[in-house]
């Protein structure tokens, strides 16, 4: 089972690389527009050796982590507040619903005017892009709590607040976790977008800079790194979650089936 989980994706990636390489060999693709895999690997090792890749990666990672953390810190209390208080819901729901319809990209000009082109603007974009999946996931989880479990709490004589803490919030965790994973992915996309537009460091900047220098190999190398870090961070998040909440992990279901 676990062998297949590694083998299948590896084969898929290797096949794509092979087709890519063959296409270049056969002269179907233009070496400038789509450099051979070997050229991209060369670019990667060149960027690694010079420390440029590490520098840009660290800048991007820091932004993503900060923005993601900010999003989560905003979304969790707000979701609880809006799930438990009717007045808060009445006031905030229309505003948030409106904001949700506006793509974060459309707000970039405004963010640049308000926050400049520094770190605050990058964080702003990440927060806008990653807030809603966590927020909506948690709220969905909260409102989806099984009323039969709440009755168990009522019979045990729990107060409203205890029912919230001991039944409602834990049972909202699975949906929150899905929201967290989506949010982390959105954070990455939004960040690279922000760095493409106005930035002097970060992986997005590295790509746009390479494009200006006609270095397609570096552009592709940057894309590979972004995708790889995205996959890796999702994997780490999943591992962390299954450590903290073992009952969420799918293996338990499999063990029972």
């Amino acid at each position: 089972m676990s062998v297949r989980r590694i083998l299948v994706p590896t084969t898929v990636f290797a096949s794509v690389a092979a087709i890519w390489w063959l296409a270049g060999r056969a002269g179907w693709t233009n070496a400038y527009l789509l450099p051979a895999p070997s050229a991209v690997v060369d670019a990667l090792s060149e960027l690694t050796a010079s420390g440029i890749l590490l520098k840009h990666t660290l800048v991007s990672l820091q932004r993503v982590l900060l923005g993601f953390a900010l999003s989560v810190a905003l979304a969790l209390p707000l979701a609880v507040l809006m799930s438990t208080s009717r007045p808060c819901r009445a006031v905030l729901d229309p505003l948030l619903e409106f904001l949700r319809q506006v793509p974060p990209l459309a707000l970039i000009p405004l963010l640049i005017l308000w926050l400049g082109i520094g770190e605050a603007q990058k964080l702003g974009i990440i927060v806008l892009a990653s807030f809603f999946p966590v927020f909506l996931g948690f709220r969905g989880g909260i409102s989806g709590v099984d009323p039969k479990l709440i009755e168990v709490g009522r019979i045990a004589g729990l107060a409203r607040r205890e029912i919230l803490w001991r039944i409602v919030l834990p049972s909202a965790l699975p949906e929150l976790v899905v929201g967290l994973r989506i949010s982390l992915g959105y954070s990455w996309r939004a960040l690279v977008g922000a760095e493409l537009i106005a930035s002097s460091a970060g992986l997005g900047y590295m790509i746009i800079d390479a494009e200006n220098l006609a270095r397609t190999d570096i552009v592709l190398a940057g894309i590979l790194v972004i995708g790889a870090i995205g996959l890796l961070s999702d994997l780490l998040l999943r591992i962390a979650i299954s450590r903290v909440f073992p009952w969420l992990s799918a293996d338990l279901e499999a063990a029972r089936a």
């Binding site: 039969k148 479990l149 168990v152 019979i155 004589g157 205890e162 001991r166």
Partner: peptide, 28 residues
């Protein structure tokens, strides 16, 4: 004080067996 055994088990999926049994007692 009322105790109920429901027709379905109604256990908290995030708690192990002992913690489920302890559930109504915690804090009391």
């Amino acid at each position: 004080q009322v105790g109920v055994v429901f027709q379905e088990a109604r256990l908290m999926p995030w708690l192990d067996v002992a913690d489920n049994v302890a559930f109504p007692l915690i804090g009391r």
